[in-house]
């Protein structure tokens, strides 16, 4: 009665080294961590797609799930942007370049790239929920992939310029011809070169067609709530609008039982859902 085959311990994390820490906002409670694999061999086994998440271990404190902000086209690293809110994130924010963390994943489904192929893409993001959208943008802008997708329109907003993630990269993207990016802040600020206004209003302004297009929305619940009717008005159907959900998670593999909405586990069946799928579920999230 021995084990027929070797089953790996699904809770054993990869060992990662923090290669870089970037403070993303003036409050310094939003940081981007770039992680590298301590063991070269692990790199080839962590194969992910934009939209997936992973559990970061802070040894001595615990584990928490985060959407992957890097793109698989960025070889050798995995990147996360983390807001300091609770126990694990507070401990993570203390860590510096050279410190070690654990990484478990990739977990969950991903942005449905197969459905996006050949389509025009409208990405709408708000605040620090832009992480897996960054992954998607980087993936699509990669030389190998760009030809597989149509127009790429990005609307990204935050309360003020300081709260926008990846500021340098946003500037770079703004200068590129193959992406149409609109940055917006809630209230005018001196020196601000982008748009002023809430994300739903800006979306209505700049997105004119839903033809052969899909939309991806990520942001605070209130932003999503007001953006959806706008997208519907432009002509997007529920089947063509996608979002990513956040729930409290522990195992990340559909066993611990806390992240379900109806019969769907956000960790295993999500975190990415189409609005059509969400409309069938109770709004218990």
């Amino acid at each position: 009665m021995t084990c027929q085959c070797e089953i790996k311990n699904p809770y054993l994390p990869y060992q990662m080294e923090i290669l870089e820490v970037v403070e993303e906002n003036p409050e310094k409670d939003l940081k981007t961590f770039t992680l590298g694999f301590l063991n070269e061999a692990d790199h080839g086994t962590f194969l992910y797609t934009p939209g997936q998440f992973a559990e970061i271990s802070v040894f001595g404190t615990g584990e928490a799930p985060f959407g992957i902000a890097s793109s698989p086209t960025e070889k050798g690293i995995v990147r996360f942007s983390v807001k300091k809110v609770g126990r694990v994130t507070t401990a993570l924010h203390i860590l510096e370049k050279g410190d070690l963390v654990g990484l478990r994943g990739p977990l969950g489904n991903s942005w449905p790239l197969e459905k996006f192929a050949g389509k025009n893409l409208v990405l709408v993001g708000g605040g620090f929920a832009f992480t897996t959208l960054r992954s998607l943008v980087c993936y699509i802008l990669d030389e190998e992939n760009r030809k597989n997708y149509g127009n790429l329109t990005v609307v990204y907003g935050a309360r003020n310029p300081g709260q926008l993630l990846y500021k340098e990269e946003l500037q770079d993207w703004s200068a590129r011809p193959d992406i149409d990016i609109h940055l917006t802040i809630d209230r005018p600020v001196e020196g601000w070169w982008g748009k002023v206004g809430f994300v739903p209003a800006v979306t209505e302004q700049v997105v004119t067609s839903s033809e052969n297009a899909v939309a991806v929305v990520c942001g605070p619940p209130v932003m999503i709530k007001f953006t959806l009717p706008v997208l519907k008005k432009i002509g997007f159907t529920s089947e063509n609008i996608f979002t990513s959900l956040e729930m409290k998670m522990k195992c990340g593999i559909g066993m611990c039982g806390r992240c379900n909405i109806g019969n769907k586990f956000v960790c295993k069946d999500g975190p990415v859902f189409s609005m059509a799928e969400l409309e069938k579920l109770p709004a218990e999230y």
């Binding site: 809770y11 271990s57 584990e63 522990k250 611990c256 039982g257």
Partner: peptide, 18 residues
């Protein structure tokens, strides 16, 4: 079968407990 996962640690050792 719902469970929690938490770390129990001393200065030098830790275990992740379900």
């Amino acid at each position: 079968h719902c469970f929690d996962i938490s770390d129990e640690t001393t200065d030098t050792e830790g275990r992740r407990v379900r």
